[in-house]
Amino acid sequence: MKYSIFVLLILLMSSCASYIDVSKNSVNNDSMVFEYGSNENKLKYINKVNASADHDVYYTTHFSITLPKGIVNWTRSNNNFFFEYDDKQIFYIYSSYKNEGQESGNWELKDIGYNEVLKYIGEYWDKRNYNENYLYKANNGRVSKFYTNGKYKILLYNIKTENLQTFIQSAKTFDTNL
């Protein structure tokens, strides 16, 4: 009996420690400042490295955004940012280059089909070795939304309905005026 209570306590403590944004170790380097706050996380992406192809130069977009607490994993690949929360809730950002695409000026929140989701988070999904069948199916009590102005894209994938407004409010903090 004592042994099972001890194991239960260890499991509970380790599950609380699985959030990477509870530590005091914020990220601060040449390309970003990612502050883990007590109520929210603030990301400021300031990469000074631009991309080039042939004779064209693509200028990196600097941006800031406030993200909800409870991140279990995050990664960046080029201009793609993936923030994963409990139960495979994913907050994805595509920050296009300054001279890439047209910005409409109006941000829209749209529904997104599960078949479209793959082109945005498929790379991350594969890297995490998640079951691809799960990616395509709608889950009860979950919503996926797409927030864009035509140039910058934010995908809120598989978000629990009780968390949706928090995630939408975070998406609306995306700012390129640094």
Rank of each mutant, 00 (worst) to 15 (best):
D54V: 00
I90L: 10
R128N: 11
N80S: 13
T60L: 07
G101M: 05
Y97H: 02
F146Y: 15
Y94L: 15
D111Y: 06
R142G: 01
I90S: 01
S96C: 06
E132H: 04
S104P: 10
A53E: 03
V49R: 05
E132K: 13
E84R: 11
G141A: 01
W74F: 08
Y136A: 14
P68L: 07
E132W: 10
D87S: 09
V57F: 01
T61D: 07
W74H: 09
S144H: 10
T60H: 11
E132F: 05
R142I: 07
Y59M: 12
Y85D: 02
N131T: 12
Y134C: 00
Q89L: 01
Y59V: 15
Y134Q: 02
L109C: 04
P68M: 06
H62S: 14
D54N: 06
H62Q: 14
K110N: 10
N139F: 09
I93L: 10
Y136V: 12
G150P: 13
T60Y: 03
R128Y: 12
S77L: 08
I65W: 05
K153H: 11
F81A: 08
V143S: 03
S52K: 07
I154L: 14
K153N: 15
N133V: 05
I65T: 08
S96N: 13
K127F: 03
F146H: 14
K48S: 13
Y59R: 07
S95D: 00
N131V: 08
K151D: 12
D126L: 09
R76K: 14
N129E: 15
G113T: 11
D86Q: 03
L67Q: 09
N50R: 04
F83T: 08
D111A: 10
D87R: 04
E84D: 11
A51Y: 05
F83M: 06
K69T: 14
R76F: 07
G70C: 03
K137W: 02
K145F: 00
N106Q: 09
Y147Q: 03
S64D: 07
A51N: 00
N80F: 10
Y147F: 15
G122W: 07
E123V: 14
Y58P: 10
H55Q: 05
G113I: 00
E100M: 11
I71E: 00
Y124G: 13
S95H: 09
I65G: 04
E103K: 04
H55G: 06
N149M: 11
I65E: 06
Y134W: 01
W107V: 02
W74R: 02
K110M: 08
F81W: 01
G150M: 03
E108T: 12
K98I: 15
G122Q: 08
K145L: 02
D56S: 03
S104K: 04
I121L: 01
G70S: 08
L109A: 01
N140E: 08
G150C: 10
N79C: 05
V57P: 02
L118D: 15
Y136G: 15
K98H: 12
W125H: 01
E108S: 10
I90C: 00
Y92M: 10
N115A: 13
E108R: 08
G113Y: 10
G101Y: 07
S95Q: 03
F146Q: 10
N79R: 06
Q89S: 15
K88D: 00
